[in-house]
């Protein structure tokens, strides 16, 4: 369960400071599939970084599964990320010099998981997004955009996180490939009950979720259940 209360984020810039988040509060229950929408520069990625324990809020509280994450230090945040969160980034998702398999194993390498076990887990993870043996030893420049994003999703899954965050995972993909990637998210949500928060610009993409939060100028402007998808 995620609980934000009055979270703000202020960036220091050359001239002064810029407030990217101005008091954001909401709750997301376990197993929800939430889409976050909003114009460019409205603070979506900033929010996502805080939700993903990559950054801490300037003020306000963030509780992840009952634990206050907003005051943790760098290394404690790393442990939260390794243990509970899977992240698919807006761009640059894969290490260019590592194979698909190694990219997916990376979180487990940092978690000091045994070689045989992490390989097995990486393969399970890759299979769950529809990537098989023949791609394991490719480098990222030998993959299509959709495949790259699916590898990134596989990596986000590999440490069995309860929360998956995706920052415009279909940003650079055509409609057909987007459908494949979104299908992967939907299955994770429906079949495995994982909480998914996804940022998008596109209405079609947001339609796959069951709740849509609209953002503008660092504030929540609307928070609606997506009737079509409620089951």
């Amino acid at each position: 369960m995620i609980e934000l209360s009055d979270v703000t984020k202020t960036y220091k810039t050359g001239a002064g400071s810029f407030q990217a988040l101005r008091g954001v509060s909401f709750r997301i229950e376990d197993g929800e599939f939430v889409a976050i929408m909003g114009p460019s520069g409205s603070g979506k990625s900033t929010l996502m970084h805080i939700l993903g324990a990559l950054d801490t809020p300037t003020s306000g509280k963030y509780f992840l599964n009952g634990k206050d994450v907003s005051t943790l230090c760098e290394d404690e945040l790393v442990d939260i990320r390794l243990g509970q969160i899977g992240f698919v980034f807006q761009s640059f998702n894969l290490l260019p010099r590592a194979t698909v398999l190694r990219n997916v194993m990376l979180p487990l390498i940092y978690k000091s998981v045994e070689k045989s076990e992490r390989e097995a887990r990486a393969k399970v993870s890759l299979e769950s997004v529809g990537l098989y043996e023949e791609h394991y030893h490719h480098l990222s420049n030998q993959l299509s955009g959709g495949q790259i994003q699916r590898v990134a999703i596989a990596r986000a899954l590999v440490n069995d996180p309860s929360l998956i965050l995706a920052d415009e995972p279909t940003g650079n993909l055509d409609t057909k490939t987007s459908e494949i990637v979104l299908g992967a998210f939907q299955r994770l949500n429906q079949e495995q009950g994982r909480t998914i928060i996804l940022i998008t610009h596109e209405k079609d993409v947001a339609e796959h979720s069951d709740r849509i939060i609209h953002f503008k100028d660092g504030m929540v402007v609307s928070d609606t259940k997506n009737q079509k998808n409620l089951h």
Partner: peptide, 14 residues
Amino acid sequence: TKEIGLRKAIGAKR
């Protein structure tokens, strides 16, 4: 730089 950022984001300690 990006690679290092990615490594840290997915679980590498300082």
